[in-house]
């Protein structure tokens, strides 16, 4: 358990890095959105990691069972919200990308930038 405790946080940090890198360094707009999704998922992992209690189970109370240990319900609720927020952002982002493709004929950031330079 000891190793896993920190491994979760490290994976969170590494995923955050990978997603963030894709957002900044990639020029393709869809790739940027995929990076953004990874970036957000990493944060979900951080929250869910802190909800775990050793020996615990999902916080669903069963009648008649006493002395059960439950995991923390609150981070789960927060992340349920955050997942839906993430999907909403992605969907809106994709709609904008589709319109960009229709008006510029490209979804590469540098080509779009060049298209608008005064000639």
């Amino acid at each position: 358990m000891e190793v896993l405790g920190y491994y979760n946080y490290w994976v969170f940090a590494v995923l955050l890095m990978i997603g963030f890198y894709a957002v900044i360094a990639r020029s393709n707009l869809i790739k940027k959105l995929l990076g953004l999704a990874i970036f957000q998922s990493a944060v979900f992992l951080m929250y869910i990691t802190m909800n775990k209690v050793e020996g615990g189970t999902a916080p669903i109370i069963q009648k008649g069972v006493v002395d059960q240990i439950f995991s923390n319900p609150l981070p789960q609720v927060l992340i349920l919200t955050a997942i839906v927020v993430g999907v909403s952002t992605t969907a809106l982002g994709l709609a904008i990308v589709v319109r960009i493709k229709e008006t510029y004929g490209s979804i590469e950031e540098h080509e779009i930038f060049e298209a608008d330079l005064p000639k």
Binding site: T49, K52, A58, P59, S71, Q76, I79, I83
Partner: peptide, 8 residues
């Protein structure tokens, strides 16, 4: 799921 977050 492993982390006990079934709903998520």
């Amino acid at each position: 799921f492993i982390l006990d977050a079934a709903d998520v």
